[in-house]
Design a protein around this nucleic acid. Structure first.
Length: 584
RNA sequence: GCCCUGAUAGUGUAGUUGGAUAACACGUAGGAUUGCGGAUCCUAUUCCCCGGGUUCAAGUCCCGGUCAGGGCACCA
């Protein structure tokens, strides 16, 4: 709705400027006044013009005001100082809104663009820990946001099957006799209470032990190197199977975890394929042709001309490839899969991705757009799979759900076990996803249980607003709770509906949703959505508290308003990958 | 040492085209339920790290500090 209103306001301003023979600035600034009492939209165009016209902003505003005409959606337009403020006609606006908001509210028209989005891509050498979760949650929310904003999005998990880590795991299994207990892993699937048995956790423990062993027996490193060489050459199919199984096992566990968080990838791309299919070799050849490579002891790419002192090593002296070389081949491939490439990366990858971007430019390929995030650390310090110091995402999920469970049991004695479990899960997962998505990625997060999982501050209150709306609608008799559908047409809106403050505020907030989607998608940021969902819930709660809906004179109008609020809350939560329970 | 990021009420955060009275949540202190769920609402409280500069206008841009985190591998 605001898109249309903004256009109308813009047209009014332009017409007025035209009449005055003033120059029309290319982008006339329109913003929201600090307080709705001051208007619904305002422009600072007079400031913009002051210098060119050699007039004071105040005088320009006076002139504009003498000539301005507005469309009927605005009640009036008033100046305050040099600001020009537009006031919406809420009788018209609210009816229009209630007529137009539908189930897919927030969805923008197609851009025709395809984005390849890589996120999570954690090494398959252990379970996801709460450091990884920021990547997954930002990535998955961004996917939802960009899709809603009209893009086609393909999400990929880049699987590091060829790195030293996996070789170490294979080494541990073959040389140290460490093994994965399949029965225990299977056992976990059937009754999820022994996290240590979960297959990716078993692999994590194995990896930790191998690290300890190698640290004490440095001479054994050569064995690991040999394993890397063998796997990379593809000369030993038996060995390949061992590698592949280890990776797949770990991935099985990782996928279980992600799916609980409502995170699903479209593709899993194994880095090994880029070595096996010759892409890495070809890429190295192409880079040599650019004359930027140097071959001293090893082959590397000299990036000094681009302001990077550190050269990028392309091959080990034993001829095997490195992570960054394979990643380069992967990026080249990705850039051919869509119109743009988007990576979600921890800020520790900043230098590496910069090197990769420059190399891609040398090869005339698109470089990726990157969203960096800072680390989540524990109060006692940073996490490490290698050192075995971390809180796993599975632990976090268990704790979140169990806290939600306790909470809901206290409040709802009327619900059966199955319902309670389902709702606890929705609330627990919501708390986690909301906690991460509400802060901007460049901010450091120190993880504290109570802050991450508090239901007072956070997501549960938004979900509660949704549940409340559903309950109210259910009582009116025209609402199907299973289908979540209100059968009440907008021509039932009463003619004598004069909106009060809380209604206007709610209308305004709902109407903003597509605007928030557009702006957030443009910035590729999800935390404004979290804030918006909170604002929406708050506007709804205020309305709910101050106005009676059922049995009032304007029941139809208010029921429709509640229904639209419900949809907006649900859809905004959905952008964050958070469920909207109909009761809780 | 060089490079990158952060610093906003007691706490955690928003504030990205420079614009009006800096927003939200929690905390604390009060208050609200004869009506649809109190996981709610209302009131009070308190903030732009320091020093310069640009501008009609700076939390926002520029320069110089301080503190915190990260990066600078034949690791990923």
């Amino acid at each position: 709705m605001y898109f249309e209103i903004k256009n109308d306001a813009l047209k009014s301003i332009k017409n007025s400027l035209k009449k005055l023979n003033y120059e029309i600035p290319e982008d006339i600034k329109l913003e929201f006044p600090p307080n709705p009492k001051m208007g619904d939209l305002s422009t600072t165009v007079s400031f913009q013009l002051a210098k060119k016209l050699k007039m004071s902003p105040m005088d320009i505003t006076t002139k504009i005001m003498e000539n301005i005409e507005t469309s009927e959606i605005f009640d009036r337009v008033k100046s305050k100082g040099p600001y020009i403020n537009f006031f919406i006609n809420y009788d018209l606006f609210s009816k229009k809104l209630l007529e137009t908001v539908s189930d897919n509210c927030g969805k923008l028209p197609s851009t025709g663009k395809k984005i390849v989005l890589e996120h999570t891509s954690a090494n398959p050498n252990g379970p996801l820990h709460i450091g990884h979760i920021r990547n997954s949650i930002i990535g998955d929310s961004l996917k939802r946001l960009l899709k809603t904003a009209g893009n086609e999005v393909d999400t990929q998990y880049y699987v590091n099957d060829m790195g030293r880590q996996i070789a170490m795991i294979v080494f541990g299994m073959e040389k140290l006799g460490l093994n994965i207990d399949e029965d225990l892993a299977e056992n976990y699937k059937n009754n999820e209470n022994q996290l240590d048995n979960k297959i990716d956790h078993q692999i994590g423990q194995l990896y930790f032990k191998v690290n300890e062993y190698i640290n004490e027996n440095n001479d054994q490193k050569i064995e690991v190197d040999n394993l890397i060489k063998t796997y990379e050459s593809g000369s030993n199919p038996e060995k390949d199977k061992v590698f592949e199984k280890a990776v797949n096992d770990c991935l099985t566990g990782v996928k279980q975890t992600l799916s609980k968080l409502n995170v699903v990838h479209d593709d899993f791309i194994w880095e090994g394929r880029f070595v096996r299919n010759g892409d890495v070799d070809n890429l190295v050849k192409d880079l040599i042709a650019t004359d930027y490579t140097k071959a001293d002891e090893v082959l590397c790419l000299d990036l000094e001309d681009f302001g990077i002192e550190k050269e990028l090593v392309l091959r080990r002296s034993d001829g095997t490839s490195l992570y960054s070389t394979r990643d380069l081949a992967y990026h080249k491939w990705k850039s051919e899969q869509g119109d743009s490439v988007l990576d979600i990366l921890g800020s520790d990858h900043k230098l590496a991705i910069k090197q990769i971007s420059i190399a891609l430019n040398l090869l005339d390929e698109k470089s990726p757009e990157v969203i960096f995030y800072e680390f989540i650390i524990l109060p006692e310090g940073s996490m490490s799979t290698r050192r075995g110091v971390f809180i796993s995402v599975d632990e976090l999920i268990e704790e979140a759900i169990s806290r939600a469970n306790k909470e809901i049991k206290d409040r709802r004695v009327d619900l059966d076990e199955e319902e309670i479990n389902k709702i606890s899960e929705e609330i627990g997962i919501g708390a986690i996803r909301y906690f991460i998505s509400k802060v901007s990625p460049e901010k450091h997060i120190t993880f504290k249980w109570d802050e991450a999982l508090s239901f007072e501050r956070g997501c549960a209150s938004i979900q509660y607003a949704h549940a409340r709306a559903c309950k109210l609608l259910e009582k009116c008799g025209h609402f199907d709770l299973n289908e979540e559908k209100l059968s009440l047409s907008s021509d039932k809106i009463e003619d004598n509906w004069n909106l009060n403050d809380s209604e206007m505020d709610l209308i305004r907030t709902i109407a903003k949703f597509p605007l928030v989607v557009e702006e957030s998608a443009n910035m590729m940021r999800v935390h404004p959505i979290a804030q918006y969902a909170q604002d929406l819930a708050s506007a709804f709660n205020k309305f709910y508290k101050s106005e009676q809906v059922l049995g009032c004179e304007i029941e139809s109008a208010r029921l429709l308003l509640v229904d639209k609020a419900r949809i907006a809350i649900k859809n905004s939560l959905n952008l964050l990958g958070v469920a909207a329970p109909t009761k809780m």
